[in-house]
Each structure stands twice: as C-alpha cells, then as structure tokens.
Write a protein that binds this DNA or RNA. Sequence first.
DNA 1: TATTGTTATACTCTATAACTATA
DNA 2: TATAGTTATAGAGTATAACAATA
Lengths: 147, 147
Amino acid sequence: MTEPHAGGPRARDTAEELQLALGMLVRRLRAAAGDGVSLSQMSVLKRLERLGPSTASELARAEQIRPQSVIATVNSLQAEGHVARSPHPTDGRQQLIALTDEGRALVRRRREEGHGRIAELITERLGPAEQRLLAEAVPLLRRLAEN
Amino acid sequence: MTEPHAGGPRARDTAEELQLALGMLVRRLRAAAGDGVSLSQMSVLKRLERLGPSTASELARAEQIRPQSVIATVNSLQAEGHVARSPHPTDGRQQLIALTDEGRALVRRRREEGHGRIAELITERLGPAEQRLLAEAVPLLRRLAEN
DNA sequence: TATTGTTATACTCTATAACTATA
DNA sequence: TATAGTTATAGAGTATAACAATA
C-alpha cells in the first residue's frame, strides 16, 4: 500500500470535505446576498473594478464562463444602472463595459460593509489564529480555481 | 478608527478573496461534474450515505436548503434509480429516502476515483506543505458553512 | 392546529446553437 | 474566413406560495 507521492488518501479526503463545505458555503452566501445584487452580478462588478473597462470576452475569460453567460449578467447590471456600454474606439465589433458611478459606489459600499455575511461569519466563528490560517489558505483555493 | 477586536481589515480582505475563489471553484466543478450526476445530486447522495435513510426535512436541514428544493433533487435521483422512497413505519406523513444499491455503488465509485476534478487539482497544483495547509483549513470552511 | 410532503411557478446562473456585424 | 457580440432556448438549482395528507 504505497502512497502516491504528492497526494494519496489525504488529498482525496480533503477534496471530499472541501467540496461539501464549498457547496454549503455558496448556498449560504446566495441566500444572504443582499442589496438586490446577486453573487454573479457582484463578481462581475468587482472584476470591472479591478480590470477597468473591459469587453465581454475579457470578462468571460476572467470569470471562467462563456461570453453569452457574461452578457446575460451584464444586461441585468445595465438595466439596473450599475454598468454602461460604450463602443470600442477602434474596433467596431467590440463594446467596452464599464462601471457607472453608481456601480462603483455599490462595490465600495459593499466593501465598507465588510463584504456582508462572509466577513461576519469569519469574525464570529473563527479565533485569531484560525483567521490567520484561513487567510493563508485562500490563495491556495485561488490557485485551484485559476485557469 | 478602532479595529474590531477579532477581525478588522484582515477578515474583510479574506472574505473578499474567499468569495471570489469560491465562485470560481464552484463554476469549475460544476462544469466538470461527470457521470451525469450534478453537484447537488452528488451532495444529496453523499449525505444519504452518511446519515442513512432520511426524510426530506432531514435532508433539507443538512443541506441547508428548503424541503421543496431537496424534493426536486430527490425526484431526479429517484428517476435515475439512485435513491428509493419508502413509507415511514410509524408516521404516515413521512417518506424515508434511501440509497439504492446502485446509488451506493455510484458514491463508492466516485470516492475511489478520487472525487474527480477537485482531487486532481489539489495534487497537480499544490505541494505537500500546501496540501497540508489546505487540509487544516477545510474544517474552518466547514465551520463557516454550518448552521 | 401543526407538521410533512408535495406541486406549481419563477428567478438566477450557466450552457449550446445559431445569428449579425465587423475585421 | 475569423472574431466579437448577441439572441434564443434549455437545464440545473433554488426560492416562495399554495395545497394535501396525516398527526
């Protein structure tokens, strides 16, 4: 019964527990998404804040979803006044999507409020050492999620 | 500008990064869900394996979703032969939901295969020390997700 | 009356396929 | 022909509201 060098049962157990926790956390967050802005919408708004004005393709690549899916989200955000489209200066096929002032204010407000439920949970349920451990682990999750 | 005693900016940053990584990971896992069994379906199957035969209410509580939502998932699992319903022995209102032999075999097979994409990602992208760190952090995520 | 399960319906999120406009 | 954006449509996942059956 030799162990696989880099993983073995531990990786498998971690995977199972992680998947379970992931599902539950996402459900909890979705249920708690306030302000009338859904998780996906918020994700796109934050992405625009980081990237600046972007095309649908760029957003889709960053979010790891299809351009068609991003467009659906962008349409709803535009209808609510959080983003605006403008024609690309040189390529007539492209549309630049950008935060409106209102969208930017929404993201800022959300950040100041502590990112809602998840920050509350972290401070309520984890001690200082555990919070540090979690902070170290999050970049690893990020690596798992990246393309 | 006094800091909250147990959190402060660190918890807020962790929350933001965690939420971003969470969304991306779930999308990646959903896209990779094989075997014709979705993430929610698999979650219910695993839950039944842990809990044994359960009522819809019990499952809903464990999964943190509404009984109506669990019933939709159970209906699809039953149509595919992975679970079966039987009347509760003493309470005529309740239905016991249990894994069929086929459902049990599916969960076992999935575990032997290493829980699919997520275990692969862990062994491919993280070194041994990072895997240990992640394994320590997963129970914390679990705590955040619990009721 | 309270509890359990259920059906009907709707919304979010994402996908695939097919179309339009521009390069 | 290739690329960017888009529309149409569908399926998973979950919610609320309303109802039926049983306790």
